[in-house]
Design a protein around this nucleic acid. Sequence first.
DNA 1: ATATTTAATTAGGTAAGCCTAAGAAGATAT
DNA 2: ATATCTTCTTAGGCTTACCTAATTAAATAT
Lengths: 217, 217
Amino acid sequence: MPSEKVEEYLEGIFKLECEEGKANVTRLAERMKVTAASASEMLKRLEKEKLVTHKGDRGHVLTARGEHMARTLVRRHRLSERFLTDVLGIGWDVAHEEACKFEHVLSPDVEKKLAEMLGNPSTCPHGFPIPDLDGKIAQTEIRRLSSFCASERGVIAEVDEEGPELLQYLSSLGLIPDARVEVKEIAPFNGPLLVKVGRSAQYALGREVASKIWMKQ
Amino acid sequence: MPSEKVEEYLEGIFKLECEEGKANVTRLAERMKVTAASASEMLKRLEKEKLVTHKGDRGHVLTARGEHMARTLVRRHRLSERFLTDVLGIGWDVAHEEACKFEHVLSPDVEKKLAEMLGNPSTCPHGFPIPDLDGKIAQTEIRRLSSFCASERGVIAEVDEEGPELLQYLSSLGLIPDARVEVKEIAPFNGPLLVKVGRSAQYALGREVASKIWMKQ
DNA sequence: ATATTTAATTAGGTAAGCCTAAGAAGATAT
DNA sequence: ATATCTTCTTAGGCTTACCTAATTAAATAT
Ligand SMILES: [Mn+2]
Ligand SMILES: [Mn+2]
Ligand SMILES: [Mn+2]
Ligand SMILES: [Mn+2]
């Protein structure tokens, strides 16, 4: 049985692979909040356990087995988030860190029953797709809000942020998955976006924040 | 933050105190499935951390702080069992070991929301009382079924067993909390009890099994 | 009182995960 | 070509939680 730490590393490597194609020591260490030395040691161990292989061009990638485990963890994480927000009424801003603990204690049977109870949801509260039992993740066409032009409109698909503060702020503006957003204006010199959420007032969003909001349609 | 291991030891010591008044190294080691050496070391550490004190008459007892932590864990364990059986439909025979993992990942907020969602239940699926937020445990008058005489009747309060096999067997006979049981006959020479559950057939129960069933009324 | 059994502790060791500090390898700049 | 970053690895240490084997302490039996 892999330890909770090993599981967290697999998840971290998987996310890095999704975002950057491969994982390197430095980026993994950052994500796991450990030193590069610690990340290097863990990668060596994961390679010995055939969960990771050393890709030629400077980087590490998960093996089939490692990737399957990672996808299972992502599924359990997002199902847990769904449960925490929908059933218990926990805020989406803290659901992530609570789910990060839950994901390691779900057995296959509990995972299955939980998914059924929730009606086999397809996304987590932040809009990310929930992998199916085989680990398959539904792909959709999405673009960053920061890439939008003035007068463009769309619907929020995903909010790519884990910290509670920003999530709390965004939900207070109604900027949550499935909200309709229209970009009214973009300030010059790479300035903030003026957006309208639903039929409420306009808000100015910094580019960094806007780049964490992924839009569909 | 206490580690999961420390939490499990606190729980083990608490149960021993309830059952035998105090915890000694040997009994604790048995319960935790470690050697006496390991249990001895852990007790030393818990004493250093002021979670346990060395009682004069051969034994260790929890401090107020240690006991409060233990009661919180028991509460989270039993709430988790309730959730697993009532909401997810997990069998009571495996709910215990699943809950043993859940109890360590519940934050105070999640614990509170979970208790509310469940309607603040007063007992776990095995009939044991759920401590309230202060750790207070409701006391009731209960007796072992094995102490019953022929023709005595009562209602099952608690089933004091953690292994899945016996629990599965007992529930197949309808021997679960709140079931009405009548002792029809007791075989001589400390023999088995012939019991009638509800209005179904009679079953012969060994004394060891009968002593794990606690009756009320 | 002495011997035996049981209970508890100590000594010494291992593995997982973390750290700092030092060194090696690669990439970039001058 | 040489110097300077950046990235990665190694060496050496620490803590937690476990182990076996040996020792000490306490209880029980003869
Ligand atoms: Mn996680
Ligand atoms: Mn999420
Ligand atoms: Mn437990
Ligand atoms: Mn129970």
